[in-house]
Amino acid sequence: MKLDHVLLATDFSSPAQRAEEYACFFAARKHARLTVISVLEFAAGMDPAYPVNHQYLTERMQEASVLLTEAKQRIANRGISASTRIETGPPSEAIVAAALTEAVDFIVLGTSGRSGLAHVLLGSTAERVISRAPCPVLAVRSTGGTEMALKRILVPIDFFDCSLDAAEYAAQMANESGSAIRLLHVMEPVSYGLDFTLGDATDLARVRERRLRQLEELATALVAAGISTTSVIRGGIPRNAILEESRQWSSDLIVMGTHGRRGISHLLNGSVAEAVLRQADCPILAIRSPKFHPDHRRLIPVSVRQSLSR
């Protein structure tokens, strides 16, 4: 995995403070550069020169400058050198733009895990960043009180390319940290056919057996690479099954591939990664655009990936 430059996006809230701890954790492990960004939310089209807007931005800028200086000192106390920047505009757009400008390999940010009407009306900065980011995004919802560890990584697998990318990224992390991986495949509930009959039980058993073989093949490849790996199949709604497995296994991190859907497709189909993000007890690492060094050694052989890919 390529992790030379980490971008921490903060609004100085409790989740953002926990995200800062994770950003420092990964930056220290990889001796990576760390950039801390704070975005002053400002709607597109508003005139920053208008007196009221100008006063608002000036006050927010002063406040953010003080808080960023304090954050930079906290980070320095951990032995990590950080640079800071302040941007204005819609937060998700500013964070993605900064990630592109800075050519970062990893974004870390906190999320409040909103749901219900507030989520529908306001959306989530974390979810919007995940859907557009040019690199993996670590979203941290927890507010502290738990050990900073990376011992157990849960990797949901649906055998599409994005989940196999996530598996490779998780394998690289586990290989460097000595973490254990659990592969999870979720078989969704049976749907009714046009004649209102259930699918043939024999066909369902055959599908389950095929998925078991595929999971075992992937697990075997990871074990051969020296990674402690187990696998499990659950039935149910994907987001619920992932959350339940994560809690029962006490995972420290969930690494998920995401299609990064936007627009009407997103509204109709949603995103499992984003649904999990709202309720997970541990951080979620969303992989839409994985970053690897050009000469990295694949831990999941190409031949295995080709045999697994849908």
Rank of each mutant, 00 (worst) to 15 (best):
N175K: 15
A23D: 15
I242R: 05
V190Q: 11
R114D: 12
N240R: 11
E216G: 05
A9K: 09
L117K: 03
N53F: 14
L212Q: 15
K72E: 14
D158A: 05
A133F: 04
E244L: 11
D11S: 08
E216S: 14
C24E: 15
G193W: 10
V190T: 08
R261D: 10
G270H: 05
W249Q: 10
A97Y: 03
F292E: 04
E102Y: 06
S231D: 09
L215H: 10
T111V: 06
G199M: 09
T202I: 13
F196P: 00
P294Y: 04
T10S: 02
A19Q: 05
V129F: 04
A103T: 10
S13N: 11
L299I: 05
Q17I: 08
Q214W: 12
V223P: 00
L222E: 06
Q17L: 14
K291A: 13
A9T: 12
F292H: 15
Y56T: 01
A241K: 06
Q306P: 01
V255W: 06
R310I: 12
S265D: 14
V232F: 00
A118L: 06
C135T: 00
A82M: 09
V155W: 10
G193Q: 09
I130K: 08
P48K: 02
D11E: 07
S38E: 13
A118K: 15
S179D: 07
L3A: 12
T125H: 05
G123Y: 14
I181Y: 03
A43K: 08
E188S: 14
M173N: 00
A166K: 08
A23W: 15
S81L: 09
P301F: 10
Q55R: 14
K30A: 13
V129R: 07
G270A: 11
D47G: 13
I86L: 12
G270C: 03
W249K: 02
Q214L: 08
D161N: 06
V39Q: 11
L285F: 05
E168I: 03
Q279Y: 13
S38A: 13
R261H: 12
R128V: 01
I130C: 01
I86Q: 15
R182A: 10
V272S: 02
L212M: 02
R297A: 14
A64M: 09
E102M: 12
E217D: 08
Q55N: 07
G235I: 03
N175S: 15
T35F: 00
S250N: 14
